[in-house]
Simulated scan of single mutants.
Amino acid sequence: MTSSDLPAYRVRVSSRARHVRIQVSAAEGVIVVLPRAVNPASVPALLWKKKAWLDRTLSQFEGLQHQRPLATQNASPTFIYLRAINQQFQVTYHKAANLDLHLDTLGNQLLLQGHVTHDSLVRQTLQRWLTEQAHLHLPPWLETVSKEIGLKHLKTIIRGQRTRWASCSQRQTISLNHKLLFLPPHLVRYVFLHELVHLVHFNHSPCFWTLLTHFESNCRSLDQELRRAGHYVPAWAERR
């Protein structure tokens, strides 16, 4: 079993929490509340222990998700977890009439000031921040994998594609989706391998899969897992 078999969930770190709490509602789905001392990486194992209960509880809300108010769907996050690099960020908001919208960072703290009730502005601001994080972390990681398997590309581009995790052009340019930062590291690595192999086989022919299998014997399973990985991406990160 993999984490993709778990229901979609969000993690919220609370300085007041003394124990791990799992909250389920029709409005917000599954939320795991963690004390600061608990590593978010432990959440999947915790949820597996409650899998039967989660399935029963979520089934009671089946059909209600489509009735969720738009304001709830667009709710600004108070916590961001970038699984790919195992970094978590606390997000706070300060309403100020004299500022359009401004984001300040201090370590793993994000402060948005200005028109913080404007969902579209908040989403765009956080997406720009996400792109900056992707530029910082993804190209060096791709370069490491490239050197490891001996397949060299010429250029890396960071984008926010709606339907693709990544792509490779015939000019040997690899485009990476900034939303890769929400995926588990093993899936990000698989995406890198997949696109690097396209430098040799610009298709999905048997030769492509043979070479990819040489670098990653579990590639077929990982490919299927990647197809179900959209639940890792929060609503605010999706472009409208």
Rank of each mutant, 00 (worst) to 15 (best):
H19V: 14
V20R: 14
R21C: 04
I22R: 09
Q23Y: 00
G29E: 06
G29D: 08
V30D: 03
V32W: 05
V32A: 08
V32Y: 06
V33K: 07
P35W: 01
R36G: 09
A37I: 10
V38R: 05
N39L: 02
A41H: 04
S42A: 15
S42D: 15
L47G: 05
L47N: 04
K49G: 05
K50F: 04
K51I: 15
K51M: 12
A52P: 00
W53D: 00
L54W: 09
L54D: 07
L54K: 06
R56I: 06
T57N: 05
L58P: 02
S59F: 07
S59W: 08
S59H: 15
F61Y: 15
E62I: 12
G63N: 07
G63Q: 06
Q65A: 15
R68P: 04
R68K: 07
P69Y: 11
L70K: 14
L70T: 12
A71I: 10
Q73F: 13
Q73K: 14
N74P: 03
S76Q: 14
P77Q: 03
P77L: 03
P77Y: 01
I80H: 11
I80C: 13
R83N: 12
A84R: 10
A84E: 11
I85K: 01
Q87W: 10
Q87T: 15
Q88P: 04
F89Y: 14
F89M: 06
Q90A: 14
V91Q: 14
V91D: 13
T92D: 05
Y93R: 09
Y93K: 06
K95H: 12
K95G: 09
A96G: 01
A97V: 11
L99F: 14
L99I: 15
D100R: 03
L101E: 00
L103R: 00
L103A: 01
T105V: 11
G107M: 07
Q109V: 01
Q109E: 02
L110W: 09
L112T: 08
L112K: 03
G114K: 05
H115K: 13
T117H: 05
H118G: 02
D119N: 08
L121H: 09
L121V: 05
V122R: 02
R123Q: 15
R123W: 12
R123C: 13
Q124R: 02
